[in-house]
Design a binder for these strands. Structure first.
Length: 438
RNA sequence: GUCCCGUUCGUCUAGCCAGGUUAGGACACAGGGUUUUCAUCCCUGCAACAGGGGUUCGAAUCCCCUACGGGAUGCCA
């Protein structure tokens, strides 16, 4: 059996739409699953929109999502060129073939293709047998001499040896045009698989580039994990048929097949996307988490090359099990790196209802500042002693005020480890600042 | 208008092909618990077979019709 060859054929518009990304992904998965080739072909015939920047958005998005291609831009193969703008001669040659066969004719300045009028049967891998008759001849070359989509698409798939066409359902009705053309050239038709569309979260219709979450660039900007976006995209219209959802790409590859692809279209759900992202974040090895967090915190001006590596790692260890996204990480751990953090007014107000929090902080300061060892155990011991001296069983009444004094926040990592990681000097200094300012 | 495709909790889905399930899971939401706190963790609850007809002892599952949704019908891709 010959090698599987699939392709993703985007048109660079300056955006990388989530639906396109998923189409690319389903092709990529099939290629990797079968050991075939994944071809990236650029449909750059629209000279207005197709700028180098627009192409770059696309290539960056592909790489970010981990979809490497075997042939295409930056990776020449024997079926090139991979830009439609450079394939003019190939198209003209194929037009001539149809002319010679008497299947193409001029009319109103354009070139029309003569359809057979026979029912076209598509054995679609997702939808089963679909039958449709193409009744009217259609234009394959415009009057300005340029070939149209249906024609170039088929010629490219044919000349690039594409064996499987995996694309959006919006092309299902067009497929009869394509099979007519394949037959006219005497070529073997590829296997078709039409995947469902991604619909808007609310309102009618498919997702458009204006909808929230529609562009891969958004996920890049918001520091989503590419593995999570990829995972969610797989789940939108495909299922492993058991209850697994959070999966690695290897696990997905293990299960991926056309049978798992849904027939009905799916609505995008940003909350589930966020959930999958958080799960992937939790499952990261600490080193990877730190490695990804580092540029984010650097960007936020919280760390630089002088930041103590050991301290940084310890903070990351506290943050990873609790923070929900890299996007909010700077906010979550900012006070570890910035002594000038602000006190959350709501928290200040809440604490003040039960008395002046600065008093509790002053008591904590007195209890802790004399400690020689600064460990969870010793800090806890000092708090216990403070509680006993005040006739309390547990030191809990002091904790919210202490947290507020050292972080300005009402929540965060476990308090004792937090204090230990901050270190005695910082803790005491922050106690003093809180007392002085409130 | 015509043609093509689809329809299970609010959402993503399992189950359908090979008819018998208390129709399962997840997100979200609601309640409870753990926790000094929290954006962590645990438990519980809520909630669906689009409608109608047929076949059958028995239908989410097979067949037909209707409704609704989506797509195509471009000298866009």
């Amino acid at each position: 059996m010959s090698e599987v060859r699939v392709r993703f054929a985007p048109s660079p518009t300056g955006f990388f739409h989530i639906g396109s990304a998923r189409t690319a992904l389903f092709n990529w998965l099939y290629a990797r699953k079968t050991g075939g080739k994944f071809v990236l072909r650029i449909e750059d015939t629209d000279k207005e929109r197709n700028t180098p920047e627009a192409l770059q958005v696309l290539l960056d998005g592909m790489k970010w999502l981990g979809m490497d291609w075997d042939e295409g831009p930056e990776k020449d193969g024997e079926y090139g060129p991979y830009f439609q703008s450079q394939r003019g001669e190939i198209y003209d040659k194929h037009l001539q073939i149809l002319r010679d066969k008497g299947l193409a004719y001029d009319k109103e300045g354009a070139v029309f293709f003569k359809v057979s009028d026979k029912p076209q049967i598509i054995e679609d891998k997702v939808r089963g047998r679909v039958e449709r008759t193409e009744e009217k001849d259609f234009v394959i070359y415009r009057s300005d001499g340029s070939p149209v989509f249906h024609f170039v698409n088929v010629v490219d798939d044919m000349t690039m040896g594409i064996t499987h066409v995996i694309r959006g359902e919006d092309h299902l009705s067009n497929t009869s045009k394509h099979t007519e053309l394949f037959k006219a050239f005497g070529a073997t038709e590829p296997v078709f698989a039409h995947i469902p569309l991604i619909l808007k979260q609310s309102g009618p219709g498919k997702m458009s580039k204006r909808d929230k979450g529609a562009l891969i660039e958004e996920y890049q900007d918001k520091q989503f994990l590419p593995s999570a976006v990829r995972n969610y995209l797989c789940l939108l219209g495909w299922s492993p048929k058991d209850d697994r959802e959070v999966m690695t790409i290897d696990e997905i590859l293990e299960e991926y097949d056309f049978k798992g692809i849904q027939k009905g279209s799916a609505k995008f759900d940003e909350k589930k996307m966020a959930f999958i992202n958080t799960e992937h974040l939790r499952q990261l090895p600490l080193e990877t988490f730190s490695w990804m967090a580092s540029p984010v915190l650097n960007e936020a001006g919280l760390i630089d090359e002088d930041t103590d590596e050991d301290y940084f790692q310890k903070v990351m260890m506290l943050a990873q099990p609790k923070v929900n996204s890299l996007d909010t990480l700077a906010e979550y751990v900012g006070y570890f790196f910035d002594d000038d953090f602000a006190y959350d007014e709501k928290v200040t107000a809440k604490l003040s209802k039960k008395g002046n929090p600065a008093e509790k902080v002053a008591e904590a300061k007195e209890a802790l500042e004399g400690l020689e060892n600064w460990t969870e155990k010793s800090v806890e011991g000092a708090f216990m002693k403070l509680a006993e001296d005040q006739g309390q069983e547990k030191p809990f009444p002091w904790f919210p005020s202490v947290r507020w004094a050292v972080s300005g926040a009402g929540g965060g990592p476990d308090l004792l480890p937090l204090l230990v990681v901050l270190g005695k000097d910082k803790v005491v200094a922050r106690f003093e600042r809180a007392i002085a300012q409130n």
